[in-house]
Design a binder for these strands. Structure first.
Lengths: 196, 196
DNA sequence: ACCGACAAAATTGTCAACAATTTGGATAAC
DNA sequence: GTTATCCAAATTGTTGACAATTTTGTCGGT
């Protein structure tokens, strides 16, 4: 949980390793921005601010748009089948109103696009950004009507990728994530006024 | 130097700290991607491949284009003066054919844009990407006629920013860094054939 | 009851020693 | 002369102890 204190000795005994391991792990998480460390005061889970959440989502947008373009140029016949299979799973999840399955398909589709794009640098950065957003993502998914519109956006992305149309893929991804950003802003604003 | 072995004891005595510090530092550099560590075999400076260099430059392009747009929306009168001052310094450096000064102005301008955009997430990522590119950047700067064309590109960026035109700023930055990417590809190809 | 000083506990920072593993070289067999 | 094997040196991985610092709790005075 945000701001939760991370006591080295506790973590060490919990995971059955010694403090040195925990220490290096915390150093890496610090570098990654997931925890903050203060001298002699230990590590805490970093609480990202609302403004920061939006920054992260926008940065993600910029990179994923590029990745979508790159992926479009590399799609093979086998990739088309995989993409369409994920799309079918996603359609089923929406039909069944299964939010968990939808979320899983969502992740699977984005991961598949990364795999096709074969851009390890971008993928690594996106993984980090996602780890920050994951806590906020469920708020957006749960908005009424979101799965339906999200499905339509994803279908446009898959369509463009299968057509190997880089411009269209980038545009579709940009549209999808622009919507995500604006819904995120909305959810944050709602939370700000409606309590929490 | 790439692939150079980083012996913990040596570094510790060199910097006058103990091995534990070096160890955590190496863990962070590993997370950052600047160093690779193999179990029981120590750490080495990571040698980025040609393909990776291009990936990094392209990812940088995507983020900097976004940052330029964000900066344009926030430029103040004071920012305009700073930007124009850096531009003037840059023009002087080109006139004097002072590559070192030009490189310094280049960095200063990009940093100033980041500051104006006020997007800590993007700035942090860009700092990491730059640290990987720094070794390759000089090859591009030294290409004949590069300072002149680079200057023109930078002037377009400054112009768009001062006009608070987000679209133009993003487009100008994208054009600038697209040129950088293609020159980098060129330089890499030349090195591949002409032997280093 | 409230505030401050002080002591005790908890926690992190630092360090050195030892164990495990890899590396380099010498030696012996072919 | 080349290759395989083994030993020694170098290096990293792991552990525990201790020092420094912060946090918590207690006591006494007002």
């Amino acid at each position: 949980m945000p701001n939760e204190r991370l006591v080295e000795a506790d973590l060490a005994s919990h995971y059955g390793v010694n403090r040195a391991h925990i220490r290096t792990a915390l150093a890496m998480l610090d570098q990654e921005g997931l925890v903050v460390r203060e001298k002699n005061r230990g590590a805490r889970v970093r609480a990202i601010t609302d403004a920061e959440a939006i920054e992260i989502a926008e940065t993600r947008l910029a990179i994923e748009a590029m990745v979508a373009r790159q992926a479009a140029a590399r799609v093979t016949e086998a990739d088309r089948k995989t993409l369409r299979a994920i799309e079918a799973d996603m359609r089923r999840a929406v039909k069944d109103a299964d939010d968990l399955a939808f979320s899983r398909c969502n992740g699977a589709l984005h991961r598949e696009i990364h795999r096709i794009a074969d851009n390890a640098t971008a993928s690594r950065i996106l993984a980090t950004l996602r780890s920050h957003l994951v806590r906020l993502q469920y708020r957006v998914i749960l908005l009424p009507g979101r799965p339906q519109s999200s499905l339509a956006e994803h279908r446009a992305i898959v369509e463009a990728l299968c057509a190997r149309d880089g411009d269209a893929a980038e545009a579709a991804m940009r549209k999808h994530l622009t919507n995500f950003v604006s819904l995120l802003k909305q959810a944050i604003e709602a939370a700000r006024h409606g309590g929490f």
